[in-house]
Design a protein around this nucleic acid. Structure first.
Lengths: 225, 225
DNA sequence: CTTCGATGATGAGGATTTTCATGGTTTTAG
DNA sequence: CTAAAACCATGAAAATCCTCATCATCGAAG
């Protein structure tokens, strides 16, 4: 699940980010209107946390633009002012929920979950890149129209890459995310090499339009070819 | 890691609990002084979150008693009043940190981590039950004086049980905790049966003084024999 | 341009994890 | 008390995962 935080208070942004990442969300941040809009046109997010008061414009405008772009995904408004007008206007413009600062982080987490649950009704959520499509809930994978099979760890790897297309993913990030706490600075990445090898074999066998490129000394990157 | 929350505001207690559980801590709660004291004499916790204002006594007294009991583990004071006197007195009495309400949950989480890290210096932390001792960080296990070997999943199971001695553990809890998100209401518990079987074989081979008892229709329970 | 150290890839083998088929227990209903 | 159903245990086979040894590739220094 991928979440975009649009929030100009950097320390608060950081608190949100670390909390959400601990919840295993994939998080990106934008400090202002402009950056937020760019990210939104480039990527698709499962949920957007939008602060109304931005340095370079009112968040409600961004909401209007989003509507025109016909982007899917949930949106929760975060606002310092608990004004009824803002709330009503925001919800009218298509926001899914409204949260006034200050709030408990647990409250935010439960709102995120409920909003995403609500929006998921009747339409499954997928992660797509190239001709590959992944359903994070059912662990199904399609290449083009054909459903394909892979093992659990292979799925974990693939999903992790699919959620970060075109970005460099370090081996320690992979290890951390796939093996979780069971991983304290190991100096041996053999099992990552092994999994990457297997996943690459799958991708070519499937005729997928994506591949895992090595970035020497840095890690790997999922690219379209 | 096991945490005890002593806090009378039940809704706040609940927020803390869910947050900490999402962080994979094992959480127990006590709504007042008396209950807290009972739990503390029965079990050992890695960290205690103590509210100063309790309905049946001042939390600082509990701190004094704890000191006499020579209990290990970290303690963080939570207080509605941000008074310097309380803070100084609390820290004098051996508290490891002091947090004034309201606070961000992310703040609490980082305090917990830093406090536990600090207290862990020079003395490893173990989970013990019967003649079995487990180090959650290094994944080492001892039975009596002898170090023993087991596989990763067996370790996961053992640790999960060791953190909840004498409590019934359901199969869905086990599945959830060991396989994480990769687990949506599966109707097949064969792999749990298999792991339990292997772990039991280990325990008897080691001459451990503990065993995994079945609780028909409920799950399993780690008991001393 | 060559060499060397560091980094990454690969096939094979062994260990672990999961599934499957079967049989034994416990509970409940009759 | 008996039978049926749900629940649990177990050995063996299959699938997956991780390690090891070896080889290939990359980048920096000379």
């Amino acid at each position: 699940m991928k979440i975009l935080i649009i929030e100009d208070d950097l320390s608060f942004q950081e608190i949100l980010r670390s909390t959400l990442e601990q919840e295993r969300y994939v998080v990106e941040v934008a400090p202002d209107y402009r950056t937020g809009l760019i990210k939104l046109s480039d990527y698709t997010y499962d949920c957007i946390l939008l602060d109304i008061n931005l340095p370079d414009g009112n968040g409600l405008n961004l909401l209007r633009e989003l509507k025109e772009m016909k982007k899917t995904g949930s949106l929760i408004i975060i606002s310092a002012r608990d004004s009824i007008e803002d709330k009503v206007e925001g919800l009218d413009l298509g926001a899914d929920d409204y949260l006034a600062k200050p709030f408990h982080l647990a409250e935010l987490l439960s709102r995120i979950k409920s909003v995403m649950r609500r929006n998921n009704q009747g339409g499954e959520q997928y992660v797509s890149y190239g001709n590959v499509k992944v359903n994070p809930h059912t662990f199904e994978v399609w290449v083009g129209e054909a459903k394909v099979e892979l093992s659990r760890k292979e799925f974990d790897f693939l999903l992790y890459f699919m959620q970060r297309p075109n970005r460099i993913v370090s081996k320690s990030m992979l290890a951390e995310s796939i093996w979780g706490d069971h991983f304290d600075d190991v100096d041996n990445y053999d099992f990552i090499y092994a999994q990457i090898k297997n996943l690459r074999k799958r991708l070519t066998a499937w005729n997928a339009s994506i591949e895992i490129a090595s970035v020497y000394g840095m890690g790997y990157k999922l690219i379209e070819n």
